[in-house]
Simulated scan of single mutants.
Amino acid sequence: MTTATVVVHPEGACVRIAISGEIDLENAETVEEQLAAAIPNEAAVVVLELGELQYLDSAGLRVLFALAARLEVLQILLRVHVPPGSPARRVLQLSGFEGVAALEG
Rank of each mutant, 00 (worst) to 15 (best):
T30V: 13
I39F: 09
E49M: 06
E42V: 06
P40A: 06
I39L: 09
L50S: 13
E42I: 02
V31I: 05
V45E: 06
L56A: 07
A38T: 01
V46D: 02
E29Q: 14
I39W: 08
E29I: 08
A43G: 05
Y55C: 10
E32T: 02
A44T: 08
E49S: 07
A59M: 07
T30E: 15
A43Y: 06
E33N: 14
Y55M: 13
V46S: 07
V46Q: 07
Q54V: 12
L50A: 11
A44V: 02
E29M: 09
E52A: 15
P40T: 03
A37K: 07
L48Q: 04
Q54L: 15
N41T: 13
S58R: 08
L48E: 02
A44N: 05
A37N: 10
A43R: 07
Q54R: 15
Y55P: 11
I39G: 10
V45G: 03
V45A: 01
Y55R: 13
Y55D: 07
A36T: 01
S58A: 14
G51T: 08
Y55L: 12
V46R: 10
L56E: 02
A59E: 01
P40N: 02
D57P: 10
A38M: 02
V31C: 11
S58M: 08
Q34Y: 04
L50V: 11
Q54P: 06
A37T: 02
A38S: 13
A59T: 06
A59N: 04
E49H: 11
V45P: 03
V31P: 13
G51S: 12
A36L: 02
A37L: 03
V47G: 01
Q34H: 13
Q34M: 10
A43C: 04
E49A: 10
E33D: 14
V45R: 11
L48F: 05
L56H: 07
V47H: 08
L56C: 12
D57H: 09
G51K: 10
N41A: 14
A28E: 09
D57A: 11
S58F: 06
E33F: 03
Q54F: 09
L56G: 13
A44E: 12
P40V: 06
A44P: 00
G51A: 09
A59I: 07
A38Y: 01
P40C: 04
N41C: 05
A38I: 00
E49P: 03
L48I: 07
A36K: 00
A38L: 01
A44C: 05
L56M: 10
L50K: 13
E52C: 09
L53G: 13
V31T: 01
E42F: 03
E29P: 06
L35H: 00
D57K: 09
L53T: 11
V31N: 03
Q54E: 15
T30Q: 15
Q34F: 01
A43P: 06
L56Q: 08
G51I: 05
N41Y: 04
L48R: 06
V31S: 05
V31D: 01
E52W: 04
L50T: 08
L53D: 08
L35V: 00
E32N: 14
V47E: 12
A59V: 02
L53C: 12
L48S: 05
V46T: 05
Y55V: 11
L53W: 07
N41Q: 10
D57N: 11
E52Y: 03
